[in-house]
Structures are given as C-alpha cells and as structure tokens.
C-alpha cells in the first residue's frame, strides 16, 4: 500500500481522474495549489474557474452554474467554505438543492502552524444542520477518491472534508465503499470505537492498546456523516453495549453528536467522545497539537475503558 498521502492530494487526483465528464466544473478561490485543484486546472483549463479571494461569491456562482446542468466542485479551506460562506451555502445551494460539491480542505487542527484562524473545528456541525446536504469525511486516499465519486454520482449538495496532513493508507485501493454506509475495520464485542477522518488510524491503534488489556474493541469508520449509517451504529450499540467516538472536530455537533443522536433515540448505551472540547486550536506542529488536544490512540483507549465502566 502507498505511503502517507494527504486527503486533499487524493481529492485533487480524483478530480483529474473523473474530470473527463464535461459537466464537471472545478472552482477555487485563489487556493488552487493548496486545495490541489491545480491538477484539474492543468488538464482541463476551460473548466476550472478561479473566483479570487471571495468565498461568498464562489458559492453562489457555483449555485448558478449548477442551475445550468453543471456538476460544480467549489473548493476552499474548510474554515471559509463552511464558515465565511455558510449563508450562501444554506440559501443558494442547499435550499434549492443544487448540484454543488464543496471540496473543503485544511479541516481540523492538523492544519498546524497556521493556527486557530485557519483550523476549522466546527465545520461539520455547521454543515450537518442544513437540510439537503450530504457530508463525507474520508480518512485516506482510497476513501477520498470514493468521496469524489459519490458526490458526482449522487445529485444534490455535498460537503467533502479533506485534511492538509499526509496520513497513512487505511484502505486498499480496490476497496468497495458505499455512500451512507460505514465500514467495520475490526470486529469486536466489548466496546465500539466509531471514528472518521484522520482519527481512524488512531482508532485502530487504540484497538491494539485495548487488546493488550484483553479488551476486544470493534472499530468502525463512518466516512459518510450525513446521511449517517444508523444500522451500523445501532448494531454496535446492541452487540458491544458501549461506544467511544473519535473525531478531529469539536465534540459539539460533529460525529460524536451524530452517533449519540442515533443511540439515544434507538438503543441507549454509554457514548464517550474524543474530540476538541470547546476550545480554539493554536499554532504548532500538527502531531504535537494532536497530543495537546487529546486526539490520540491512548486517549481513545482510555475513553473506551471509561465507556465500559459506565455499564
């Protein structure tokens, strides 16, 4: 399997791979080298549109193109795509249910040195609250490719969340993904670890730590946060009795909340959440930041045990 690859790079590669479809337009806001849409720009210059540093206009213009039959990928950093342009996404893309795919890169604190202003830790919570939009947060290159493919194949607005940091490959490139369906990466009976994005690798490591203590943890990757795979979550609640979630996002309104919404209404079991706890990020080395904010395999394992102790 390939070495470490940033999901933003896999996003850029997927746009090139699927870009021969004449309906596809890729838009950027002066960040094409960072969001990695520059590969598409080189191959299909007539269908790449740079909107300059104007994210609000990026989103509404994308909506206008979509009304004319285009499949539009609108790219910027997650903090601007979901934050600055929130109301444009809500009113001009989601309300009329238009075919705009928001390619949001540089999500989470693993952005690193740029610091809090550029670290989107609330984007999923914001996007998840809007009707009509689907959200995918892939963990590696293969699942990022799937995210782009799913967005092309399914009509309507999508929010695709990609990271800046190079991450290890979880999936074989031939893995079959299904939109809206989670993946069981390791079966287990004592506790379920439900993760997405960059935290999937740490969820797998946490399962190994727990195994050393004779705890058999199930590990689930929920790449599609909306619509969420209710079945896989309810099954995990029933069969393992307790859950810990792990996400590179605030624990308010992200994956943990989405899992808790399903569990509390269908089959209540303890749910512990690993994520960012109502704090802004800060500048620093990405790996050091992950340690500081508790986004580690050790913390997931500790919270898994806490979740088990609540039974």
């Amino acid at each position: 399997m390939a070495g470490n690859i940033a999901t933003r790079a896999a996003y850029g590669d997927a746009l090139v791979e699927f870009g021969s479809d004449e309906r596809i337009i890729v838009m950027d806001a002066d960040l094409s080298k960072s969001t990695k849409t520059d590969g598409f720009q080189k191959k299909y210059p007539d269908r790449h549109i740079n909107m300059g540093i104007a994210e609000a206009n990026l989103m509404c213009t994308a909506a206008g193109l979509a009304t004319c039959g285009k499949i539009v990928f609108a790219s910027s950093f997650a903090v601007f795509a979901a934050g600055r342009a929130f109301e444009q996404v809500r009113n001009s893309i989601c309300y009329p249910n238009l075919n705009v795919k928001i390619g949001a890169t540089h999500a989470g604190i693993s952005v690193g040195e740029d610091g809090a202003s550029h670290q989107a830790i609330e984007d999923i919570a914001i996007m998840r609250s809007i009707p009509n939009i689907s959200i995918i947060s892939p963990c590696d290159a293969a699942s990022s490719r799937f995210a782009v493919k799913a967005a092309i194949e399914n009509d309507g607005p999508f929010y695709l969340r990609f990271g800046r940091l190079a991450v290890p490959q979880i999936y074989d490139e031939n893995t079959k993904f299904e939109f809206g369906k989670g993946m069981v990466l390791k079966d287990g009976t004592d506790v379920s670890i439900i993760a997405n994005g960059l935290m999937v690798q740490y969820a797998l490591e946490a399962a190994k730590i727990l195994a050393e203590q004779d705890i058999n943890a199930r590990v689930i990757d929920i790449h599609t946060i909306k619509p969420i795979d209710r079945d896989i979550i309810i099954k995990a609640a029933k069969e393992t009795g307790c859950i810990v979630t792990a996400e590179e996002h605030t624990i308010m309104g992200g994956l943990g909340s989405a899992v808790a919404e399903v569990v509390t209404s269908e089959y209540p079991v303890p749910v512990k959440m690993v994520g960012i706890e109502d704090k802004f990020g800060k500048s620093g080395n990405p790996y050091e930041l992950l340690e500081i904010y508790g986004l580690t395999a050790e913390n997931i394992a500790a919270k898994a045990i806490e979740s088990m102790q609540m039974l």
Binding site: I49, A56, N57, M59, C60, T61, A62, A63, G64, L65, A66, T67, C68, Q88, S92
Partner: peptide, 8 residues
C-alpha cells in the same frame, strides 16, 4: 452572484 454563474 448566482446570475454570474449562469452567465459563465
């Protein structure tokens, strides 16, 4: 802004 997209 959406009209700009339609014109494009």
């Amino acid at each position: 802004s959406a009209a700009v997209g339609m014109a494009l």
